[in-house]
């Protein structure tokens, strides 16, 4: 009898602690949820709503309901679809360059673990990627200036003719890729170092004891571990490349013509130069979907890594 009572009491106790825990968990989450609702969900709903309206800030008429016409315009607009494909081209070329160079540099520093002054050297290497793109753009504008830039000084002293990198229609886009590569190769080098660091030391030693040829070491020992972090690095770079705006805004302002206009800059222009807010919102919704897709892929790779680690 008394046993039953005890059981009953402990049951009550456990449900009441469960309830208390639940209350606690939401209490702890509340501030973040409030911030999130106010500053993310509300603007997103606003953006979604606005995308169905014809709303130009400068016109005297208020907003008029436009149904899906903003989205149709968006699909039809050749300038915009060009800017989307240009963004993808930029992203693919830049990331291939950065990954390739990044792996080389990463391996170089990994191989030379006890390099004198490594910390200082890595500081020099890593600083470009934390500099705000506004500053990067300004710095390169000075360096690449056609009349007094130091780059053109080197070109002329090599007997080459002066080049206007940022306003030449054939060079502006490649220059943008070079600057982006300068900025982000160190990041891929960092990810390479992390990826190589995730390979268990014991396996590496075993491989070298067995005298595995280097390509076999890479394919059978290093790659199965390193691929995840490398993949995450490439994904993070893709996301960032997709967001590129400040850099082009200052360096070329999308020019010459629209040679360097990437999607984020087009969007900015629709909103703050021509004030077509409804239309710009439709573009934003499109970018939001891409961001959600990229997040899903990113988390997928992250989970795959967790699973692989749990198995090992």
């Amino acid at each position: 009898m008394s046993e039953k009572v005890e059981k009953f009491e402990s049951k009550i106790k456990s449900t009441s602690t469960a309830r208390a825990n639940k209350r606690m968990s939401w209490l702890l989450l509340a501030p973040v949820l409030i911030f999130f609702a106010m500053m993310n969900i509300l603007p997103t709903i606003w953006m979604l709503g606005l995308s169905f309206y014809n709303y130009t800030l400068t016109s005297a008429n208020g907003a008029t309901y436009a149904g899906l016409s903003n989205y149709f315009d968006f699909v039809k607009n050749e300038q915009l679809s060009q800017s989307v494909s240009r963004t993808f081209l930029f992203l693919i070329i830049a990331i291939i360059c950065q990954t390739f160079l990044g792996i080389l540099i990463g391996v170089l520093f990994w191989k030379n673990d006890k390099m004198p002054g490594k910390r200082l050297a890595l500081t020099l290497l890593f600083t470009p990627m934390v500099v705000t793109p506004i500053a990067t753009a300004l710095f390169w504008k000075l360096i690449l200036d056609p009349t007094f830039g130091v780059m053109n000084y080197f070109l002329t002293s090599l007997g080459l003719s002066k080049v206007d990198f940022l306003t030449s229609s054939s060079l502006a886009f490649p220059t943008l890729i070079v600057v982006d590569t300068w900025m982000w190769t160190p990041f891929m080098a960092l990810m390479t170092l992390a990826a190589l660091g995730s390979v268990p030391k014991a396996e590496l030693e075993a491989a070298s004891v067995d005298k595995l040829p280097i390509y076999r070491q890479v394919t059978t020992v290093i790659w199965p571990h390193a691929k995840f972090i490398l993949m995450l690095g490439i994904l993070l770079r893709s996301i960032d490349a997709f967001k590129t705006m400040d850099l082009t805004y200052i360096m070329t302002n999308g020019g010459p013509g629209d040679r360097t206009e990437l999607i984020a800059l087009s969007l900015y222009r629709f909103a703050f130069k021509s004030f077509k807010l409804g239309y710009a919102s439709a573009v934003s919704v499109f970018l939001l979907f891409i961001a959600i897709a990229l997040t899903a892929i990113y988390l997928h790779v992250l989970n795959a890594r967790k699973k692989a680690e749990a198995q090992a």
Partner: peptide, 22 residues
Amino acid sequence: MFLLLSTRFVPAAAFVIPFFQL
């Protein structure tokens, strides 16, 4: 967690308009 991460993956320009009006 997914939603939180995705907010960091959207180009800033996409959110400027609603924030500007808000």
